[in-house]
Write a protein that binds this DNA or RNA. Structure first.
Lengths: 216, 216
DNA sequence: CATATTTTTTGAACGTGTTCAAAAACGGAT
DNA sequence: ATCCGTTTTTGAACACGTTCAAAAAATATG
């Protein structure tokens, strides 16, 4: 029971190495060696390399919240607020740009604990979904209730897709990603009034329901 | 030069095994053994396991075209035609449902030849993009020229996202995926007239341009 | 035909993530 | 203090994708 220290030691070294060397360059053996521990011992605390990456994932999401939450107090415009959350998220990822593909590949596998829709990712996921919920509820503009309930989850998925785009974005400083975000927000706000039209609202709700089933 | 036979032998056995056993269960060693060839020899013809999967990818896209092309002759309605291409694509994938995640994970890695946006995937990609182009040009409804030029590529990306959704879809017979497709098509046709409004068309074009940069 | 060169094939090796039986350290009850 | 059960740690092993030098086979050249 005393050796939750060992766990922390391994965790800390792994996360530092992930940040500095990336996913594939960080080997379970190097982690164990740097921690002064046997390879098998690392596996005693973390059943999988991906479980270690998940610790990083959670930490990044916590930083995301810490960065976005104060900024949300500065505006009550919906698009601005959504932009704050999206942008703060991308900023957290910036340091990982070079190794993004390695992390990404691991996250897409539906059987991996790392997958954002997995039960193991629930803590990290709920942070981001919560941020989008805050962005919506604190805004001057409001959505129809049924859509508002489904929207945070849909926005979270949109955020994941944006991250996917970002990891493929080879434009300087990933400007295309921010451009895509801005255009998307513009279109979203332009379409906002339409969501009150019953003929639009109903199909959109159905769409959101289907989208919601990913990562329920 | 004579032994392009060996290549075909390995290729054939690998593809059959991929179909029957999936991606991870099909091992380079089992392929080599079944082909009566040494492990190193398989690598002489295919520098990577993923290069073998790519052969499967191409074959599936060819089947996609073979299935969709004749059906396209039966209607000139845009939504119907798009639905034909999307649905035919999903039908080709159906046999792989159980192993989809394995293939998928390999395809998302931007550094993999398997990635749909890679140069190596160009033959397979151009088939699908071409199908969407055919669906558009043969339709009664027309798009503004600037959007029409960008749309096939965007639809191809939408198709990839639908495949991603499909691979996560745990509803019986993946009904959710077809529902999502139908709802999406409904919304697309409903939004079609809007694309002629200059205030909508311009931002949409910008969006499509950004989207186009993935897999240029 | 004999020899040189190129193409094909082999088999052993490497480093990876992961597993596991057994050893060691630890902690509480006698 | 000693024993017993649990927790922690170890080190060797496995299967995998991949690499590579060298052997073998095929082919070209004299």
């Amino acid at each position: 029971m005393k050796s939750a220290q060992t766990r922390e030691l391994i965790r800390g070294i792994a996360l530092r190495s992930f940040r500095e060397q990336g996913f594939e360059a960080t080997t379970m053996r190097t982690i164990a060696t740097q921690a002064g521990v046997s390879l098998g011992n690392a596996y005693y605390y973390f059943p999988t390399k991906n479980h270690l990456v998940q610790e990083l994932y959670l930490e990044v999401q916590q930083a995301h919240r810490a960065a976005a939450a104060p900024l949300l107090a500065t505006s009550d415009d919906l698009a601005t607020r959504l932009g704050i959350v999206f942008r703060a998220g991308l900023e957290q990822l910036a340091p990982f740009r070079d190794y993004a593909s390695g992390f990404l590949t691991a996250m897409v596998d539906p059987n991996s604990p790392l997958n954002p829709t997995s039960p193991e990712s629930e803590p990290a996921r709920s942070i981001t979904v919560g941020l989008f919920r805050d962005a919506l509820t604190g805004a001057r503009q409001t959505l129809p209730k049924d859509l508002g309930a489904r929207m945070p989850h849909a926005l979270w998925l949109a955020y994941l897709l944006l991250c996917l785009y970002w990891s493929y974005d080879r434009s300087p400083e990933q400007r295309n990603t921010t451009r895509l975000l801005e255009q998307g927000l513009r279109l979203f706000t332009a379409a906002l009034p339409l969501l009150r039209v019953p003929g639009v609202r109903a199909p959109v709700r159905k769409l959101l329901d289907l989208v919601a089933e990913v990562g329920a």
